[in-house]
């Protein structure tokens, strides 16, 4: 690489700029804790129905079990995904994607870019699709998916979804071995300066200090509330699916927190995932119906 590699924030800004030029709405992160960028309503819900939609955004992803107290160079309980959704997927999506790699300074003449089969699915939101992991010199840098179903429903129009692992990509571009050594900006701030303490405290919280009984109660509250919200009559005259979906996301995060505490027995796991999926499906069906009517 001849040019100075992009800092972490410039990587985000470059992707924003690139996808903005492709007509995407550039959104800000969703303000509810989620385990993956896909769960943002801008992807999960907007993938339903027939209306075209193009969006890109950064989404913090919370994976409580992956916390390593800031000691592991590759694993974080909080990291960033860059998420792009194009609905319907354009014919040239692969070329657009490769263009984004060039934009962030990956020279395709120097590197080995490969599309390796990986059929993505997210059982908690009943979503599935066909696609690839994109490898750059053997490292997975992006999950590339053609959505076939969301919320357990087959989609009307297929969306193309790109999920870039930002830290991983930045580590590759900057050639650093430890995520905390990433250049965050061009003014001497490192990723560790911003996030190391957060990783420590949240790792300790996730594994030691969270209260399982509270989490369980809150999970059940959220679960109950999803259906209650959907069934509550209101002045709009139709179901409040967006607030209901927020509660599904909260339930999902509470499940992840309980999981990190080792509070979910192997046998219970499927049942919890099934409960979240059912709630998600109820929201997805309602959203699809509302979209149809709008």
């Amino acid at each position: 690489m001849t040019k100075e590699p992009l800092s972490f924030q410039d990587l985000i800004l470059t992707l924003h700029h690139y996808w903005s030029q492709q007509g995407c709405v550039i959104l800000q992160p969703y303000d509810v804790e989620v385990g993956a960028g896909t769960l943002h309503p801008a992807t999960v819900l907007r993938a339903l129905g027939k209306k075209p939609w193009k969006a890109a955004y950064v989404q913090p992803s919370r994976r409580p079990v992956d916390g390593r107290y800031g000691e592991n160079p590759n694993r974080l309980q909080h990291y960033y995904q860059y998420q792009v959704i194009l609905k319907p997927n354009p014919d040239t999506l692969q070329e657009l994607y490769l263009g984004s790699l060039k934009a962030i300074g990956l020279d395709t003449a120097l590197h080995d870019i490969r599309f390796v089969e990986d059929d993505w699915e997210n059982p908690t939101v009943g979503a599935w699709g066909l696609g690839w992991e994109v490898w750059c010199d053997g490292m997975e840098v992006t999950q590339y998916t053609y959505f076939q179903g969301v919320g357990g429903i087959e989609v009307d129009v297929v969306s193309g979804e790109l999920t870039y692992g930002l830290e991983r990509l930045a580590m590759y571009l900057q050639n650093v071995d430890n995520v905390y050594d990433l250049k965050f900006n061009n003014d001497g701030v490192k990723y560790g300066d911003v996030f190391k303490e957060q990783e420590r405290q949240f790792s300790a919280f996730n594994f030691e200090a969270s209260d399982v009984a509270t989490l369980k109660r809150q999970f059940e509250d959220m679960e109950r509330n999803v259906l209650r919200i959907l069934n509550t009559e209101n002045s709009l005259g139709y179901k409040l699916v967006l607030p209901a979906y927020d509660h599904v996301l909260k339930a999902s995060h509470l499940f992840n927190l309980m999981d990190a505490r080792g509070a979910i027995a192997v046998a219970e796991r499927q049942s919890y995932i099934g409960r979240i999926r059912d709630l998600c499906k109820a929201c997805a069906l309602e959203w699809a119906a509302q979209e149809e009517a709008r």
């Binding site: 080995d112 870019i113 750059c136 053997g138 071995d177």
Partner: peptide, 18 residues
Amino acid sequence: NQVASDGGAEIRRGNAKV
């Protein structure tokens, strides 16, 4: 799947790291 302009040095380096 590539004949890299640097003879594959970057590709080797990246793969070894992964």
